[in-house]
Design a protein around this nucleic acid. Structure first.
Lengths: 191, 191
DNA sequence: CTGTTTTAGTTGTTCGAACAGTAAATGCGT
DNA sequence: ACGCATTTACTGTTCGAACAACTAAAACAG
């Protein structure tokens, strides 16, 4: 059963979102405003934080679809980011990748070990810095590049497919406002 | 170093998003349209899918902050969703929780085992269905409820703190459009 | 009633994410 | 030149997420 993709849609009351694409379109207004009764399986969290909850759902769906698309290419989510950096910027130290991808050194180490085992990456000690490891994409990995790029455009299409040009601009604006807001909170949380 | 929170902000070139809220507002047009030079550390993925990439970043920040807030309460991200369902709806079978949270049966099993070890949940065999396990919140867990609810409102504030009422409405609308779009794609990907 | 299918839950495995701790090399100030 | 903080990378651990395979019980069909 898993999440099986669109598992989150399976809460039956979310009418306009059931699999048969029969009646659609009116979906978003319908299940947001009314809040319905207490009988509706709207997760508790929706009361407390509608936008947080929406972010959560969008994020999960987005990640899920990305995972499905990447699976076809033979990568796990996250690995594609590393490969794209390597393809675009060439050989680098792990630290550089960590900074660019904005990831964790530990995660990067293990992800690169897996990419190395998969044959997509070669790692060699840096001649100038005995601590550093230089990472570079293998020739074999180059065959993936097109597929990964197509995956990204597929993913973008999945997210924005039913949006007009104006809506996409609005979406980007909203997302950046949210990011800005979250980033501010993150700084506050830090010290 | 980890992600250290706001690690992703540390790429200095992302002007309109640096901590000092000095010049903001113009952000989305600035780093989306021009694409700048090739020297800017805008992740490769941003070219291919600006909205996808924005979703990804918002999702990560959101999850990161949620993790920080939940840590104070003694829960891991995801566990709070289970507890909230239990608090609001009382004893349930695992399957019900899986459907409500929209999670995975395997994940639910292990999450509940951990919550049981932490003393927040009690699990007992169902008297009517020998397959099922009834899960209920412990008395000890009730002390958490307020804190978790405060966590959710804190998280909502973190995401929407710098947004006006109108912007929040727009944000919710956008997120629901994105969800709808992604959900549609998910169905297409399924069969 | 018997045989098949569906449902509920568990376990195993492989991922990334995050935190802590470690070791080695580098760099910097005195 | 020495000492000390920083940088770089790795390991261990615990999470959730996702997939596969499996058991046992229930529901269903004939």
């Amino acid at each position: 059963m898993a999440l099986s993709l669109l598992g989150h849609i399976s809460r039956g009351e979310c009418k306009a979102m059931t699999h048969p694409p029969t009646d659609e379109a009116d979906g978003q207004a319908a299940d947001a405003a009314p809040v319905s009764a207490a009988t509706v399986p709207v997760p508790t969290s929706a009361h407390a934080g509608p936008i947080s909850h929406a972010i959560f759902r969008v994020a999960r769906l987005h990640r899920m679809i990305a995972g499905q698309l990447l699976r076809r290419v033979g990568l796990y989510p996250g690995q594609e980011l590393v490969m794209m950096q390597l393809w675009e910027r060439g050989p680098q130290r792990q630290t550089d990748l960590v900074r660019l991808i904005d990831s964790d050194a530990a995660t990067m180490t293990r992800t690169l070990q897996r990419l190395e085992n998969a044959g997509f990456v070669r790692r060699s000690p840096s001649p100038t810095d005995k601590r550093a490891v230089i990472v570079e994409p293998t020739a074999a990995s180059l065959a993936l590049r097109r597929e990964v790029e197509r995956t990204w455009s597929d993913l973008e299409a999945a997210a924005t497919g039913s949006l007009s040009a104006d809506e996409r601009i609005t979406a980007l604006d909203v997302l950046q406002r949210l990011e800005h807001s979250l980033a501010q909170s993150a700084t506050a949380l830090e010290e």
